[in-house]
């Protein structure tokens, strides 16, 4: 490839086109948001954020995103384990199905949940009779987030489990370790980098989720209004500075999570 790149003539044009495309498409917009949110000065930025509707939306997003990520850590680890370690009818089918939330438009995902749990459906009616409110309330938001981020933990843990040699488990057995002990001291630590990085990815995706959430959330400020929906509302009501301020907070959070995740992955690779 060195040959391809160092080939004369086209080279310079190619390089600058690609880099320009990259900067205009990715770097410039991201910088734009940061610039815009501080364009009217620090005070306006702080003011936008001190609006209780804004910071409550951010806090709510954090809380629900964390809940969804935790749920996915638990069920994702279990599903990854079962899909790798056991052979049973339907295994390949389930394994393909894992990616469905990636392939499916998030708005469709949201609609599915709305239809399944909404007021007209029998689950919705039953829940209402039992005094539980799901759709347009926090549980529905969590469910939507769990749905959308379902594949992350599974896909992060599976390769690690596949790589794990059976002989490590056997070595533990020959030294007298019980099955439970072997699981917690040998197998789980090997899965841990995947669980953590998958969980972080799921968390950052849950923070960012819009399509599925906007359809099932009630969007009541402070209770069921998440950050992404709040931003959309601000854009619609022609307040881009307010939208940009919350965006900056959300973006910074996501970037931090992404950065942490890279650190975890690098550590995992070394070990």
């Amino acid at each position: 490839m060195t040959a391809l790149i160092s080939h004369k003539g086209w080279t310079w044009g190619f390089r600058s086109t690609i880099l320009l495309y990259f900067f205009v498409l990715i770097v410039l917009p991201i910088c734009g948001v940061y610039v815009q949110s501080f364009s009217a000065g620090w005070n306006v930025f702080a003011e936008s954020l001190s609006d209780p509707i804004a910071w409550k939306a951010v806090l709510l997003t954090l809380k629900l995103g964390l809940t969804a990520a935790m749920i996915n850590v638990v069920i994702g680890t279990m599903v990854a384990w079962v899909l790798i370690k056991y052979r049973f009818p339907g295994r390949t089918f389930l394994n393909s199905l894992v990616d469905l939330p990636f392939a499916l438009p998030t708005a469709v995902g949201g609609l599915m949940i709305l239809l399944l749990l909404g007021p007209g459906s029998w689950i919705g009616t039953a829940a209402e009779a039992a005094g539980l409110q799901i759709v347009f309330h926090q549980p529905a938001i969590v469910i939507a987030m769990v749905f959308v981020t379902f594949p992350f933990v599974i896909r992060a843990v599976q390769p690690l489990l596949e790589e794990l040699e059976v002989s490590q488990e056997e070595a533990a057995y020959t030294m007298g370790a019980s099955k439970a002990r072997t699981f917690f001291q040998v197998i789980l630590p090997s899965m841990l980098p995947g669980i953590i990085s998958g969980g972080m990815l799921a968390f950052s995706r849950a923070l960012a989720e819009f399509g599925a959430v906007v359809l099932v959330a009630g969007n009541i400020p402070g209770r069921t209004l998440v950050a992404s929906v709040f931003i959309y509302g601000e854009v619609e009501s022609d307040n881009p500075v307010g939208a940009a301020a919350v965006s900056v907070v959300l973006l910074t959070l996501s970037f931090t999570v992404l950065w942490l995740m890279n650190r975890v992955q690098q550590r995992g690779r070394r070990a």
């Binding site: 410039l28 917009p29 991201i30 815009q36 960012a208 989720e209 819009f210 881009p240 965006s247």
Partner: peptide, 15 residues
């Protein structure tokens, strides 16, 4: 990956 799609849209509107 880390940017919420809504923010992605907002960026373009701002720019």
């Amino acid at each position: 990956y880390a940017v919420s799609p809504v923010i992605g849209g907002l960026m373009i509107v701002l720019l």
